[in-house]
Amino acid sequence: MPIVQFTPLSSLVQPAFWHALTDLKIDVLRLSDDAVPVSGSYSIGRSVKDRETGVEIALGCNLVVGGESFAQNAQSPAHAVPATGVFKNYNTIEEFKAADKTALFNAVTDDIWRSITVDRSTAQLTRFLLITFADLKKYKYYYWFAFPAFAAKPAWEIDGGWGPASDVYGESFLSGIHAALSIAPRAFFLVKPSKNGSPPEIAPVEEYDTFFADVPPEERTVAFLDPSAAPTNPGWPLRNLLVYLAVHHPASQHRILCWRDSEGAVHGGASRSLVGVLRGPSSKLEEKPAAVGWEKNVQGKLGPRVADLAPMMDPTRLADQAV
């Protein structure tokens, strides 16, 4: 059986985030390089139809940080789910280079592991790490994201590949999920058909035991909001969800629903969500597995990225653009 491959999250940093960082650095952090909480969000992976060739083009699997990311209890945008993380800004490029990245990464994976095993919570499954160096005079920002995900050994395999959700579930089932999620978006959730044919029931993953108490294993569906739009690859958040399931609800197989139906898909008709039966380790996971997840740079190598905002922030450069 083929191994399940996941589309990594990629960071999308809005210019407003760098403006917020500039203010934070000057007014609050100053020379401190302590870790600061940061929040981001991701939403359903979008694809767009090319009008010339007619093919569907999957857009990125993005985690977005913006101007409100440093705010306390920041609200995530409509149709998006929040992700929290750790932010660390260095004062010099040398410190940025010399930072002990392995230790920082391990600290975040420890947080995730603790929230899975001790708190039994799914809230921290997409916790991320962001380290930066802000060259404020040149309007350049060096940054490196990590989206830690535990690597399952052996890897998860898929039974028969991903299929359209509409092959498995009825239209009313899917539109019921859509209606429930459009009121309150959830990153991870459980679905079961209700007895009398009314809309399906939805519950947080934490309520697995009670929610699925009288549901036969083959009718249990674990779903997540999928930021990937690739046809054969589910998004990165599923990896840690599978670890959560392996820790608390070990089973020889799980039926996974990759929820991808945003507003447009409902108007357009066809469902884009995928469903698949995953097989993995059936014994309970006890030890913290190894994790991966540093974001690659533009050249596809492990390394930091740079955002050069001089053309949009430097007053002298802006003056040149003016008509």
Binding site: F6, P8, I93, Y142, A230, N233, V292, N297, V306
Partner: peptide, 24 residues
Amino acid sequence: IPDMDDIPDMEEEGLEAGDDEATA
């Protein structure tokens, strides 16, 4: 395009052990 020379040369090959087979 940002001047690539300005990006600190800090590729870290040792950061992650090998390629992760489950990464698409």
